[in-house]
């Protein structure tokens, strides 16, 4: 099975992947206006350094690993350590060089500005 080969391949890669974390998709809100597309994702407990955003060929991969420090034995677990990962399609109208992101209180705000050519404009008609 494909999952098995994945596991083997990752073991060979090195020690930075200590154990397989459950992967969950972060909940997102997506807004759009004339200037940009705004994506907000909830990734509580993830450190800023552990968030990776890759845009390549119209596909965006958003991922973040949550590591938690717990004391003693777990008595109750509703969330735990996870990897947040989700794929998005990025429209061509987005200027990928201008994409920027902020992370605050476990909430990622990703601004995807539209390229100049894609912004709506009104064309004035000159009187001939």
């Amino acid at each position: 099975m494909s999952t098995n080969t994945d596991l083997v391949a990752q073991k060979d890669q090195g020690k930075n992947i200590s154990k397989q974390l459950p992967v969950i998709a972060p909940e997102v809100d997506v807004f759009e206006n004339d200037q940009e597309i705004l994506l907000q994702a909830d990734m509580p407990g993830v450190l800023k350094e552990d968030i990776v955003i890759n845009i390549d060929n119209g596909k965006m991969v958003l991922s973040g690993i949550r590591r938690l420090e717990s004391v003693g034995a777990d008595t109750w677990k509703e969330f735990g350590e996870v990897e947040f990962r989700r794929n998005f399609s990025v429209p061509q109208s987005i200027d990928t060089n201008q994409v920027n992101a902020e992370f605050k209180d476990g909430q990622l705000c990703l601004h995807l500005p539209k390229s100049e050519a894609a912004k709506p404009r009104q064309i004035e008609i000159k009187a001939g």
Binding site: L68, S70, V71, G72, A73, D74, T75, W76, K77, E78, F79, G80
Partner: peptide, 9 residues
């Protein structure tokens, strides 16, 4: 909201 609980001595 989700909670986790752990206990030590």
């Amino acid at each position: 909201p989700k909670v986790d609980l752990s206990g030590a001595d």
